[in-house]
Design a protein around this nucleic acid. Structure first.
Lengths: 254, 254
DNA sequence: CCCAATTTGTTCGTATGTATC
DNA sequence: AGATACATACGAACAAATTGG
C-alpha cells in the first residue's frame, strides 16, 4: 500500500472517518474475514486508531451504507461483516443512473442482448415449482385489464416474470444485471405511467411469448428459448417505443 | 409516505441517522435538486430534525458513502448534491460480488452477449481521435512480451481496449455494465495471475481481432463489427477458460 | 419478571481546522 | 491579516437495546 503522503492533488485528502473505513475494509480483506465475523468494538477501535467515538461511529456508518457491515446492540453485539444484499446493491447502483436519464431504447438495447442468453442457459434447468410460479405470474395477464390500476398491475407482473427468471440464473453477474435492468424498467414505466394509454397488443403478444417461452424452457430446448426471447424483446421494444413516444407527446403536444 | 408505525418486523426500524438520510434523499428527489445544489447546514438540520450534531453528521456520511452528496468546509461551504461518479458506482457494485466468487465463464457469458451489441452500435460513430487512441492501445500488444511483467501489462492493455470502447457508448447503461464487467475481469485476472503462464496464442489472436474490429468500426460496418467481436469473445473465452483451468491446477495439482 | 452487564446509540459543550471575504 | 461561517473532531455523560442470571 502506498504511503498516505503520495496522494495526488485531485483527490482531496480523506477525512478521518473515511481513513478508518478504508483501513477496516482493508483489514477485512487481508484477514479473510467472512460474513458474520465480528469487528473490534467501538472502544477498541477508539484505542486502536486513537480517535474519538464520534469519528469511529461515522466510519461504521460509511461501511454500513455500503452494505458491508451491520451492527447490533447489547451483549454479544458489535459490528459484523455482512454480505451485500441484492436489494441494497440495486439501490446503490440505481443512484448512479438518477441524473443520467435513461431511455426505453437504452434499456431494451441491454435486454435484447442479455435476456435471450439467460433463456438459453435456463432451458431444462428449472425445477417444477419454479415453472409453476412462472405460470402463475403469466396467468395474471392472460386476459385484458378492466381498469387502469389492473393495467398497471399487469405491466408490473409481466416484468416480474423476467425478474423471477433472472433469479434462477446460476451466473450471479448475469442474474444481477438482468434483475437490475428489469427493476430500472419497472421504475421508468411506473414513474412515467407508460402503462397508459392501455396497449392491448403489448399485453396479448407479451403473454403469448411468455407461454411459448415456458414451453421451450420446460422442454429443455435452449435454441428455441433463445429465439422466442429474442423475438419477444424485439417486439416489446417496438411496442414500448410507441408507448414512450405517446408519453412524450403528453408533454410535447405538437 | 406511510407512517413509521407501519414498518414490518423483518426490517429492523431505522436508526436516526438512517431516518435523516432517507428524508434528505426524499427531499432532494421531491424538490428536484440538481448536482451542485446546497443542502441545509448542519445547524439548520439539527433544528429541522431536532437531533444532535453527531446524528446529523452520521446521516451525511451515509449519503456521502453512496456518492450522493459532497461536503465542503469554510464560508459558502456545506453539503452539496453530487452526481454519483462512474468510479464510485463501480466500487460500490464490486462489493456485491465480493463473496460471490465469479468464474471466468460467468464473466464471459456476459461479454459474449453485450460486447458484440456495443461494437455494432459504435460502428461509424467514433471520432478519429478515439480511433487513434484505440490503435495506440492495440499497438502495446502487437508483439510478444519478453517478461512476465510485460505479459501482465499487455493483458491489462487489451482489456483497456474494451474499457475504452465502453466509454464511447451513448447508452449509459450498456456502457457502465460493459465497463464494470471488464474491470471485474481485470481484477480477477490480476488477483489470480491468469496472465501466467504466458499464452502467446491469446495475445496474437486478440491483437488480430482488435485490428480487424478497428477496421470495421472505421468503415462503419456494424454487421462486420458485431461478427468480429462475437468471434473474438468466443475465442477469448475458450483460451481464458484454459488459463483458469491451469490456474486452478496450480492449487489442485492432481 | 426483574436486574445487572455489555455494547451500540445519542446528546451536549467545546475546541479546532479550513476556506472566503 | 483578521473576521466570519462553515464543517470537523473530541470528551464526558446518558439512553436504549439485548443477553443471561
Amino acid at each position: 500500500m502506498p504511503p498516505a503522503t503520495t496522494r495526488s492533488k485531485t483527490e482531496p485528502r480523506l477525512s478521518r472517518p473515511e481513513q478508518v473505513a478504508r483501513k477496516i475494509k482493508d483489514a477485512v480483506v487481508e484477514r479473510g474475514l467472512r460474513p458474520g465475523d465480528r469487528l473490534p468494538s467501538e472502544a477498541e477501535m477508539m484505542a486502536e486508531f486513537a480517535m474519538s467515538k464520534g469519528t469511529i461511529r461515522e466510519a461504521m456508518r460509511i461501511l454500513e451504507a455500503q452494505g458491508l457491515v451491520k451492527s447490533r446492540t447489547g451483549p454479544g453485539g458489535g459490528v459484523f461483516v455482512h454480505e451485500v444484499g441484492t436489494e441494497r446493491a440495486r439501490a446503490l447502483l440505481s443512484n448512479y443512473f438518477w441524473f443520467r436519464d435513461l431511455t426505453i431504447a437504452d434499456v431494451y438495447q441491454m435486454r435484447r442482448a442479455m435476456e435471450p442468453e439467460l433463456a438459453a442457459a435456463l432451458a431444462g434447468h428449472l425445477e417444477e415449482p419454479v415453472l409453476a410460479e412462472l405460470e402463475a405470474i403469466a396467468a395474471r395477464y392472460a386476459a385484458p385489464a378492466a381498469t387502469i390500476e389492473e393495467e398497471r398491475d399487469q405491466h408490473v407482473a409481466s416484468l416480474d416474470f423476467h425478474a423471477t427468471l433472472a433469479r434462477q440464473s446460476d451466473n450471479p453477474l448475469l442474474g444481477f444485471v438482468i434483475g437490475f435492468t428489469v427493476s430500472l424498467l419497472t421504475e421508468i414505466t411506473l414513474q412515467r405511467q407508460l402503462y397508459e394509454p392501455p396497449n392491448e397488443q403489448l399485453r396479448a403478444t407479451g403473454h403469448d411469448y411468455h407461454c411459448r417461452l415456458l414451453a421451450a424452457l420446460r422442454a429443455g430446448d435452449g435454441g428455441a428459448a433463445r429465439a422466442i426471447m429474442k423475438a419477444h424483446m424485439e417486439n416489446a421494444w417496438s411496442l414500448m417505443g410507441n408507448q414512450e413516444a405517446l408519453a412524450l407527446g403528453r408533454f410535447l403536444p405538437d
